[in-house]
C-alpha cells in the first residue's frame, strides 16, 4: 500500500527543481502544512512566500510575481482556490496568461466529514470554463511527479487538483507520460471507463473485477481535463459498447459533461456519468463517501454490469 500522497510528491519535485532555478517560487495562504510544502519552505525560505489566509491575494500576488519572470506555484485548499479566488484566477492568471500553476490541495471530498464548505466538487467545471486555464487531475504519485516536471517546462497557467491522502499506485516509477495525452491503461470492447484523479485506481480495480467475470473493459486515465485528449475518447468510444466516466466531482460541468460533449459530436452514443450528487454530500471519510455514492470499485463495476444487462 503506497503511503506517499500526491501533494508530497509535488513538494519533492519542486524542491529538486528549486536547487537549480531560483525563479521557482512557492506561494501559500497559511497552507504550507496542508500542502505538504513545509520541507520546501524550510529548505528554500527565500523562494517561499507566505500570504496568510487570503486566497484572493494569494492568486493575484502570484500573477504579479509571474509577470516579473517568476515561475509560481500557488497552493491552497482546492475548495477555496477554485471559488474564493475564482475571479482572480479568471482575470490575473487565465486572462493575463501568467506563469502561475494553481495547486488545489485536498480536492474533491478529501476533507471528508468537514463538510460542504471544504469540499471542492465544482473545481473542474469552474476552472475548465476559464479561457486560457488548463486543468489537471493526476491519479497517482508517479503521474503527479511527471506532470509537475512537465509544467515546470512551460510558462502557461494551469490548475492542478490533488487529493489529501495517498492513493494506490497505478503506474511504476518510470511511467510513460506525454503532457495532454491521456494514459490508456487498458482497452476494452464491452465498456471503457474514463476516470480522473483519485478515481483512477478504483476504475482499475473495477476493470479487474469485470474481467474476471468475462467482460472486456478498458480504462483511460484522463488526468488532462483541459486540454482534453479528444482523440483517446473518440477512439475508445468507437471501440467499446459503453462509455462510463468516473469523477470525484458534481455531475455538472466535469469530466462526464466534457466527455459527453465530445462523444455526441463525434460518435454519438450513451455516456454514463458516475459522480458525486448535485446536493449536500454525506459526512464521513472520503472512502466511505465514495462507497456510499458508488464511486469505489464495487460501485463502478456494479454500474457497468447493470448497463450490460
Amino acid at each position: 500500500m503506497n503511503k506517499i500522497a500526491n501533494r508530497q510528491v509535488i513538494c519533492d519535485v519542486l524542491t529538486e527543481a528549486a536547487k537549480k532555478d531560483k525563479d521557482i517560487l512557492v506561494v501559500c495562504s497559511d497552507s504550507r502544512g496542508s500542502a505538504a510544502l513545509t520541507p520546501f519552505a524550510d529548505q528554500y525560505p527565500e523562494q517561499f512566500i507566505e500570504l496568510g489566509i487570503a486566497e484572493q491575494n494569494l492568486v493575484t500576488v502570484s500573477a504579479g510575481l509571474a509577470s516579473c519572470g517568476k515561475k509560481v506555484f500557488a497552493a491552497s485548499p482546492a475548495s477555496f482556490l477554485s471559488t474564493r479566488s475564482y475571479e482572480q484566477a479568471k482575470v490575473d492568471v487565465a486572462y493575463s496568461g501568467t506563469n502561475v500553476t494553481l495547486i488545489g490541495i485536498s480536492g474533491g471530498v478529501s476533507y471528508g466529514a468537514l463538510g460542504m464548505t471544504h469540499h471542492s466538487c465544482q473545481d473542474i467545471a469552474s476552472m475548465a470554463s476559464l479561457p486560457g486555464m488548463r486543468v489537471y487531475l493526476p491519479s497517482d504519485r508517479f503521474q503527479t511527479a511527471r506532470l509537475i516536471e512537465a509544467l515546470l517546462k512551460d510558462e502557461k497557467p494551469a490548475y492542478v487538483r490533488v487529493s489529501r491522502s495517498a492513493t494506490e499506485d497505478v503506474y511504476e516509477e518510470h511511467m510513460e507520460f506525454t503532457l495532454d495525452k491521456a494514459n490508456i491503461i487498458s482497452e476494452g470492447k464491452d465498456a471503457v471507463i474514463i476516470a480522473c484523479g483519485e478515481m483512477v485506481p478504483y476504475a482499475v480495480e473495477a476493470q479487474k473485477k469485470l474481467t474476471e467475470k468475462g467482460l472486456s473493459v478498458g480504462v483511460i486515465d484522463m488526468y488532462c481535463i483541459k486540454p482534453i485528449d479528444q482523440e483517446a475518447i473518440i477512439k475508445a468510444a468507437k471501440n467499446a459498447k459503453h462509455v462510463v466516466t468516473v469523477e470525484e466531482h458534481a455531475p455538472h460541468g466535469g469530466l462526464g459533461s466534457i466527455t459527453a460533449q465530445i462523444v455526441s459530436a463525434n460518435c454519438p452514443g450513451k455516456v454514463i456519468n458516475l459522480s458525486l450528487p448535485d446536493g449536500h454530500i454525506i459526512g464521513g471519510t472520503n472512502k466511505e463517501i465514495f462507497q456510499y455514492y458508488g464511486l469505489d470499485s464495487e460501485g463502478i463495476a456494479k454500474a457497468i454490469e447493470k448497463e450490460m444487462e
Partner: peptide
C-alpha cells in the same frame, strides 16, 4: 503592464511586482 478592469486587483498585482523586485 497587466490586464485590469475588475476592481480591487491592483494593489495585489503591485505587491507581486514589488516582491519580485
Amino acid at each position: 503592464e497587466m490586464n485590469s478592469g475588475s476592481l480591487g486587483h491592483g494593489i495585489a498585482l503591485g505587491v507581486g511586482m514589488a516582491l519580485a523586485a
